[in-house]
Design a binder for these strands. Structure first.
Lengths: 396, 396
DNA sequence: ATCATTTAGTTAACAGATTTTACTAACCAT
DNA sequence: ATGGTTAGTAAAATCTGTTAACTAAATGAT
């Protein structure tokens, strides 16, 4: 059952209808090609109910009928798929280094995208700029004739769990920004579901929602960028991103892993971010925020202290993964963010540390698959779009 | 909406009925004394629905009518309360140092309790012993005439999220024990809901479910005992304990907070448990597992190195609390477990560390209330009983 | 004391959801 | 072709919460 399906727990017949519609839709999403009868079996609903619900979902452009099943026996079932042709969602990421935008369809394919490599200034200017780019994106031919389900925006900082407000983005210098309100001031933007979420949460959600193949029970997406954060998702039909009381779930960059260590910009010593983050590594290498970290590291790859620095960062990342496993215990780990451009020299020590320090609690059980996203340019933006779809799907 | 309400997401009319009944019951639990009309307002259901549901809940002994409301205006409402007189739940903790048993009623009052201070040996003997004690407990006069809702058992180790099996209890030397199956072999035990859960999870659930006054949005219960673990709960009407993929959520004792530090029994170095746990402190003081830690510490309170040891343990606990806050972000922290007998010398450094290291991410928002349970003898057992009630309540 | 007013709670008719049951559709093996 | 099997649909039945009208019980003004 969904945790975030409706704000209140009690429900009427309308609610029940909507719940079952969403469940059927979700079943079709997670198992493409099932027939009505398969879905009935899978969900526990009757053929009659599934039949009538599927009919409305097809009419409204959420599902499409595919080929006939070819398993012997009686009458073959008609395969059902999410309809990728009649809707789209907008997703955007306001990143420290620029804006990234995507439009994608119900199966997670990116229909059009755009990125502007220019650090955002103040919220108002950024909103205006983003609105302009969004409207440009909507002109893309791949989108023509589709209905827009809404807009999701990912931001580099914790978002209040009770209101769509960015509490703090240290790397942008923004505090308590109601970014969606600013966007609403802009002309010509589409209606629909509007969402704001933390960048790591959005990315995690997207990777989970649009997972190719058998989706994991849960996953954590570690976003290793200027700062380091993490988003968690779990839940079969209605994936839930735990946010915690103040939206700090997954703020692992500020967990202390080296008491008395280097001073962090948060005021504490020994935060994970002092060892592994675009911020700390640039500082150690004497780079500016705009400099390319991976290029510099590659250029100085021969220097022993640079090697040691990256090695230490990798090990810290591995330690974070281990600690994450003992606190959030996801069934899969995904590594993303611009630090992945450092590739092997960072990633290998991280994986090695993680492997080498599996303790009794873990060794018993099967190991945790780890996926690395080398280019996560649009991961968060696409994830924000996925969140829009998930929300829109419960209203249909 | 509940996360653990039913295994499948789709629902029929029966499900809807059960959902609303549970929601009404939960509303009465969380706000004792509301009238039918108040509950209707609170849940969004109509007076008619609430009226009919309340009638059956009163008939079945879950709710009782109380006094008339005294607010001016029209006809006064009739206050409703959970009925503490017609049911009871059994809760038991299989602890490293012995067995603890309680029987409690729907409002969380302990009607009868029992504890045996003798370390459990093998699972079978322990099950036999526990069954005997449970049946003794059921003879208690305070229980006479009540219906038993079931039995919850708390154990000192992770429980598989998919089956009620204790995966690993290092301090008991138990591995993959199906303790409930062993209990089922014993004669004369009552029917009803049977549950097995980790001790910290059970304690956390109980503190949340039977919270006196306005319950927090979520809470984490840190169990500081021989080992150190943590349980998390959140969810208004249907509190959920996240368990993770392998039941390791909250196994914070094995998060590494001092890389290269002392060797832990899990094989790694620098686990939190090497700094703050009954196990590590006893080892440092040269004590046996059966010795009283708090007595020894009090006896040697004058020694500087003992003071320093406890101080360091307290600081490590504070650090754990801080890291917990940045990963699980509960709205309230509860400290329990036998280490709390060390009182001020342990607790004060922990609180001081936690206060002193609030960083920007936290300082913004309101501070986190911390509650200390000095005597948590029956906390986990009562929590297990609470879990039984929660489960039974959705079936009524 | 009586009456209007207000709120609480109940009752009966209603609308809407899923299920049940029966049916038709479509394929395969004999 | 025919029987067996599975997919999907249609109509009746069942059960849910809602709506609307009612009764019940208190307050306060007359």
């Amino acid at each position: 059952m969904p945790n975030s399906f409706t704000p209140q727990a009690a429900g009427d017949l309308n609610y029940l209808k909507s719940l079952n519609r969403s469940t059927i839709l979700s079943t079709a999403r997670r198992h493409p090609g099932l027939s009505r009868a398969d879905i009935a079996l899978e969900t526990g609903l009757t053929k009659a109910t599934v039949g009538s619900v599927v009919q409305t979902l097809v009419e409204r452009g959420w599902l499409r009928e595919g080929e006939l099943h070819a398993r012997g026996g009686g009458r073959p079932g008609r395969a059902l798929y999410l309809d990728g042709d009649r809707h789209y969602m907008l997703g955007a990421e306001v990143g420290v280094k620029g804006l990234r935008l995507v439009a994608c369809n119900l199966v997670g394919e990116i229909l059009a995208s755009c990125h502007l490599e220019e650090p955002p200034s103040d919220p108002v200017t950024t909103a205006t700029c983003l609105a302009k780019l969004l409207n440009q994106l909507r002109e893309a031919p791949a989108i023509a004739g589709r209905r827009c389900l809404g807009l999701g925006v990912a931001v580099p900082g914790p978002v209040s769990p009770t209101a769509p407000i960015l509490s703090l983005a240290p790397n942008l210098g923004w505090i308590d920004v109601d970014f969606l309100a600013l966007l609403r001031e802009e002309p010509d933007l589409p209606d629909g579901v509007w969402l704001l979420d933390n960048e790591a949460n959005a990315a995690a959600f997207g990777e989970f929602y649009f997972f190719e193949g058998m989706p994991p029970e849960s996953l954590a997406y570690i976003s290793a960028d200027i700062g380091i954060g993490c988003g968690v998702v779990s839940g079969e039909h209605f994936p839930v991103v735990p946010r915690g009381y103040q939206g700090l779930v997954g703020e692992i960059g500020h967990t202390v892993i080296q008491p008395g260590g280097a001073l962090c910009h948060c005021g504490n010593r020994g935060c994970a971010e002092t060892l592994v983050s675009g911020w700390a590594l640039r500082e150690s290498l004497g780079l500016d925020i705009d400099d390319s970290l991976s290029a510099s590291v590659r250029a100085r790859a021969g220097e022993a202290d640079v090697q040691a620095l990256i090695q230490r960062a990798g090990e810290a990342l591995g330690l974070l993964m281990l600690n994450l496993h003992h606190t959030l215990n996801p069934s899969m780990l995904i590594l993303g963010g611009s630090l992945m451009w450092l590739k092997g020299p960072l990633i290998e020590p991280a994986l090695a540390y993680f492997e080498a320090h599996q303790n009794d609690l873990l060794r018993q059980s099967q190991s945790v698959p780890i996926k690395i996203i080398e280019d996560s340019t649009f991961t968060a933006a696409r994830g924000a779009a996925a969140q829009v779809m998930a929300r829109a799907a419960i209203e249909v």
